[in-house]
Design a binder for these strands. Sequence first.
RNA 1: GCGCCCGUAGCUCAGCCGGAUAGAGCAGCGGACUUCUAAUCCGCAGGUCGGAGGUUCGAAUCCUCCCGGGCGUGCCA
Length: 683
Amino acid sequence: MCRGQRCQTSVARPWSNVLTIQGTNKPFTMNLLAEIRSRFADVLAQYVEDPSGLIDLVRRSQDAKFGDYQANVAMPLGKRLSRPPRDIAAEIVEKLEIDDLCEQPEVAGPGFINLRIRDARLVDLLTDTAGDQRLGVPRVEAPRTYVVDYSAPNVAKPMHVGHIRSTVIGDALVRTLRFLGHQVIGDNHIGDWGTQFGMIIYGYRHFLDEEAYAKSPVRELARLYRLVNQLVEYHACREKIPELKQQIAQLQGELEQSGAEAASGDKKAKKARRRLESRLQELRDQLREAEQKVAAVDADPMLAELARQHADVGEAVLRETARLHAGDEENLKLWRQFMPACLREIERVYERLGVKFDVTLGESFYHDQLPDVVADLKARGLAVESDGAVCIFLENSPAPMIIQKKDGAYLYATTDLATIRYRMKTWSPDAILYVVDHRQSLHFEQLFAVARKWGYTDVELTHVSFGTVLGEDGRPFKTRSGDTVGLEGLLDEAVRRARRVVAANDDAKPGGPELSEAERDQIAEVVGIGALKYADLMHNRTSDYVFSYEKMLNDRGDSATYLQYAYARVRSIFARGNVRPEALYEAGASLLLETPEERGLAMQLLRFAEALEQMLADYRPNVLTAYLFELADRYFSPFYDRCPVLKAENPRLRDSRLLLCDLTARVLKQGLALLGIQVVEKM
RNA sequence: GCGCCCGUAGCUCAGCCGGAUAGAGCAGCGGACUUCUAAUCCGCAGGUCGGAGGUUCGAAUCCUCCCGGGCGUGCCA
């Protein structure tokens, strides 16, 4: 495994067996918000039949001056019961049995109920949290079985930046679901049966450099893929260019005609004109791209000659692919020969990213099940032939789902259906999550609808969609020919930048550098990879993702680096003070929450479970990154700034603050771990 | 044409099944290192939440229309 992981060996361990919990015997795990909500549910049941809708209105307060939690239930109730909301609020407060947990609730404004957790309770709860390996995060009462379908690259093609999102988001979901006690099967549904193998097979037959292949099969296969792909594109582009030019000319003509109408000020004409213009621009971009690809080959005499000799390479590649699918022995043999190298290639990237799958069942795995899937759907009357293709027509769907082409070939819809059937039969999951970009939302809508009709009604099927990877120009990211931003290159760049910053920071330390070269390397790996992942996870996944080195490798502000640094600073307090966290617990250190900073930090630490629950409610890792950043920035920073730890006024206060430090470190570490991001003890 | 998504500070974004004064980061300005790591902290400035209506005690959030952008839409994945 990568070097980064070894950095953590001396990290604080949980020590739940050391701590004696005072005042309670129940095994402690508590989601504070959930507890408060359940108290309210009891009271609300007296007002409405089903309080579940109202219960969401019990939530965390935005501002400390409104207490820790607030219930906004009185206003809608007032409406429903035609009574003054403030009266209802007062009545609810009267009936509420929450005295053990909170101060006397206050009614404010139009009927807000503000709750402040009792300091003594806060101390108890946090003491329990400190003694808990799981940091107060309960295991779910009813564990579910999840299949998470993520990453899914096409093997035999180099992985690029577009693969980051699915991989990183999926990994975070898998880790977090598992931490909460669910059973999770992480499945990498790789593309291992597509046209790219036709390309490689063709390349292998015509352009193989045997010496290079013997030396590094992966590299040679990648070269063959790129070469054949370039030739195929060359011919395709050459064919397309006249067409494009004609379309452009035609559009220009239309545009000139529409000019007069638009000038008349008619709104519709103007709009139509704008649409024409943008379509024209699109075509021009396509033309420019095609011309560039052609020019790149023409400029290289060797390539140009190859292109001339292999004029029908596009057709030939499809033929090789079809032969593979038809079970041709020769091609199958080559496929089997290539696959291990291809798998090793992606595995190397996953290892570096620290991502592990439980199963890797790609398209090829389902290949021989496809005829039966189509036959079954036909037999049930779900699928019918139309224009020679086998289609499934759905209500409210703009197009049918095609599961077999008129030439007999299957499509990825077919594979996806076979995959659902296999997963249901094999694991009987309660939920299948597809971490796939949002451009495929129609496909999943149809897929899920068909699955329901097919009889799989008892499973949650969710498309965990995410935004498109955009280039710096704001256009959808595309690999420029010959200038691919490979994923590995990106990782290298991230680590290289991190290495520079690590070194600079270490050199600038007042007492002189503290890190060896090897340590610097380890830290750079953890920091670089962490920055990359965090940049992705911190955004709402539904937003488009603008690819930018600057942003992805951000090491300041709201970034993984900031959190890792916060962790290292906390840990350095223990190093500097020569304190083992375990010793605090053995000595029975207790908490004192006397300043707003200490209380605020304590409260935030207690909310870890809430953050995780909220993250999983919509499968949104950015909820957790936001929680962690808030913990470090809004709560820990002021504490660190104003509450001296090692130089606290007295030993009791010092120990209390050390406990807060330890908890902060553990929550940061655990939270980042759930995001697939590591920490280091020193940076 | 139809469908889905988006429009919030100069830039990048959070907040969106209605809640109290709309938040961060970056960039800008001003401060803080003989002090538990300055990859830091403290402070200042910055907004008609694309526009117009509507729903109501309350709208960035829900509804309608409009403007602007992206994506998808019968034989790619």
